[in-house]
Amino acid sequence: MSVIKEFTKGIVKENPVFVMALGLCPVLAVSSSVENAIGMGAAATFVLVFSNIFISLIKGFIPSKIRIPSYIVVIASFVTIVDMVMEAYVPALHKNLGLFIPLIVVNCIILGRAEAFAGKNNLIRSIFDGIGMGLGFTLALIVIASIREVLGAGQFLGFNVLPVTFKPMLVAILAPGAFLVMGLLMGLMNLKKK
């Protein structure tokens, strides 16, 4: 499999959200606005790429019995770095994402890629896998968030995009809206595959 394929597979064919249904907690929780979605996607992609890099570098030294705790330490470190740096330099975004930044630690996409890919493949492939998966995750978040923000608030990235006469469909930015939009999108993806 070529390096390019490692990169593109995460975006559609093995999309972590719509196909593998991984990491759904942050997808449901922070997809109420596109801005949050981009912030969350960027943070998760950063953690994913760097944990993939580190894990593929140190995989030779880690005995397989303790690989999971080691991976978690690496991932948690990067998440904490993101958390601290975000709070220091982009406090507004950090306030919006709040609790969900520390929760990237338990986002199954990241441990999943560490275990299923970076722990078995070389550095270059792991980097591309991380970027691809991160992009797929971010894109999925943005798609869901766009639908939710436009329907639920009549806005896109905070700008009004619908006529004033449009009465926002509040449910879209509430929790049930997240489930509805994600479920319908997953259904569409499956319909297309058939």
């Binding site: 080691s70 330490v73 690496v74 948690a76 220091a88």
Partner: peptide, 20 residues
């Protein structure tokens, strides 16, 4: 091995925490 990993991780985190 675990000790080495956690020590390195906490060292990096302490450093970053120091300036953030």
């Amino acid at each position: 091995v675990l000790l080495v990993i956690t020590v390195v991780a906490s060292g990096i985190l302490a450093y970053i925490n120091g300036f953030t």
